[in-house]
Each structure stands twice: as C-alpha cells, then as structure tokens.
C-alpha cells in the first residue's frame, strides 16, 4: 500500500470520565469512518485527561481491556471495516503503572494489539509530576504494521533527539507521537512559545530522518493548564501538511504517500549516512557518559 489515509483525532476529554469519553469516541469513529481512513491516531491520555495525580490508579487499564473497548467502539460504528488505531492511555500491567500508547489493528472484525509503547521520559519537573505516579518504559521498539515499520514516542520521548533518531535507525518510517502539552509562553509572536517549540522539533525530526510524523495533541484546559492541541502531520521533507488549531476537539486528515519517504531520503540521505557512522559514534570511548 503506497497511500495511507490518516486521521488524527484531537480529543478534549472530560477529566476522569473514561466511559463518557469512550461514548464520545463512538461518534468520532462514526464520523471518521464515513470517509476512507486506514489509520486513526489519538493523543496521550486521550480518554481520561492527562493530569490525574493519584486517580491514575483508578483509571489505568490492562492493555487488552483497553484494546477491547477501542475495538468495540470502532466495530459498532463501522461494522466490517478494517482500521488501525493508536491511542494513549494509562496502563496497569499487574500493578505497575505506565503512560502508554497502543497500536491496534482491527481487521476482519477482530482486534490485534501490534504494539504497546510505554513512555520512557516521564517529565517530573515544574508543572509535571509523572514519575511520582508512574514507572518508566524501558524499551524503544519499532514494529511492523500493514503500512510499514513504525515507532510510537509519547510526548517528551520526542524532545530527546536520540529517541526519534534511534527509532529511524531501527527502521521506523512513520513516527507516531501522542502528546499532552500544557501551553505556556505569551510573550512571543502569534502563538504560544511552547507550540512553536513543538513544531520546530517535529519538523526537524521529519526532515533529518525522512520520516512521516503523526502528532496527536490533547486539547482542553485541565485545572487552568491549557493543552495545546496543534495536532499535525509532517511529511518526510519536514513540512507540516495539515495542522489543527490549539483549542478544541478536531479531526485532521490527509492521505500520506509512503513513496515520499524514499524520495526524501534520496534527496537528503542523512539517515543512510548515520547508519554508516553510528557504530563509530557509539564506539567512542568517552561513552557511556558519566
């Protein structure tokens, strides 16, 4: 398949109301499924809200149960249709809690969990307090899908250049980034400084490695902290091809042409260069760092 119809759903969930938000998702799936769609991406903590503090232990779910809920919501509104869904959620794995994202393939009326990524970089500074409540993911894995190899990075995972770099080196051609980014910075140009920062990071990653970036941003205010939405699709040349506004729930959609990845890498073969040099970089005797 050369062209993938992507829909990114920018949710604005009611805090802690998982069942109600799941009901809303049925409407979203119904709307999204009315047009051709192969892959639907939702934000970090898309159906609970992000800042849960101790309530995370009440709302965290087993990944299979979460997959079942997503699949039911899709199949009841789009019977007989296949789709892949990515969604951020708080995961309870036998009493260990993670900030996770699931990649779910729904095919032939059945859900198949292709991968669960557990957020590796848990922001615990300033307004953030994730590591007080959650455990860190320990592995960055790429995984095969019917649209090619992918990786999921959750929010701060993406702010460390080495993470998307390793994902690309390991073969990911599409990077999916569910995120919940509280906005700040009113002293600059026409948008919040934090949104500008995110755009720069995502476009730089896409351009450097020749990958598609699918960024799903949570929206809505949570106790005064406004999530900045701004979901976007960045092509392998580093250009944002569609972008949601910061505020409110939205769907953005675009067909992405996977042949564009090869074209971008032919024009700017940085990833191939890195493949050649990375062993030397890693063999540096000053590594590992202190």
């Amino acid at each position: 398949m050369d062209v993938v119809n992507v829909a990114i759903v920018q949710t604005k969930p009611r805090k802690g109301k998982y069942r109600e938000n799941l009901r809303d998702l049925r409407d979203v799936f119904s709307q999204a499924g009315a047009d051709p769609v192969d892959l639907i991406v939702l934000p970090e903590a898309a159906l609970t809200g992000y800042f849960l503090e101790g309530a995370v232990y009440e709302l965290a779910m087993d990944s299979d149960a979460f997959a079942g809920d997503l699949a039911t919501a899709w199949l009841e509104t789009n019977p007989g249709k296949d789709v892949d869904v990515v969604c951020g959620f708080y995961e309870n794995c036998e009493g260990t809690y993670y900030n996770s994202a699931i990649y779910l393939e729904i095919a032939g009326g059945k859900p198949h969990v292709k991968h669960v990524h557990r957020k590796m970089f848990l922001p615990t500074y300033g307004v953030f307090d994730e590591e007080r409540f959650l455990s860190r993911g320990r592995r960055l894995q790429t995984f095969e899908t019917r649209f090619g190899r992918m990786a999921m990075l959750i929010c701060e995972d993406c702010w460390h250049a080495i993470v998307p770099t390793l994902a690309a080196v390991k073969g990911a051609r599409i990077l999916i980034v569910p995120s919940a980014a509280p906005g700040r910075g009113i002293d600059d140009g026409g948008e919040l400084t934090s949104i500008t920062r995110w755009r720069g990071i995502l476009e730089a990653i896409a351009a450097e490695h020749g990958v598609y970036l699918l960024y799903a941003g949570l929206a809505g205010f949570e106790g005064g902290k406004g999530m900045t939405g701004s979901s976007r699709i960045v092509d392998p040349h580093g250009h944002t091809i569609v972008e949601a506004p910061p505020l409110g729930a939205h769907i953005i959609r675009a067909p992405i042409d996977l042949r564009e990845i090869d074209r971008a890498r032919a024009i700017l073969p940085l990833l191939g260069d890195l493949h050649a040099v990375l062993p030397d970089l890693l063999a540096d005797d000053e590594l590992p760092l202190r």
Binding site: K15, G183, I186, D187, G190, E191, F221, G224, G226
Partner: peptide
C-alpha cells in the same frame, strides 16, 4: 517588565474561562 501578546492572551483566557466554568 515581561512582554505580552495581548490578542493571543485574550483568546487563551477566554477559552480558559469557558472550559473551567461551562465545560468543567
């Protein structure tokens, strides 16, 4: 003193008030 983009700030704070009062 710190600068401000007043138009952007007003938009953000209006959304804040609607979310915190009406939606929340």
């Amino acid at each position: 003193a710190p600068a401000i983009n007043p138009e952007l700030t007003a938009q953000w704070l209006e959304a804040f008030l609607r979310d915190e009062l009406v939606a929340g």
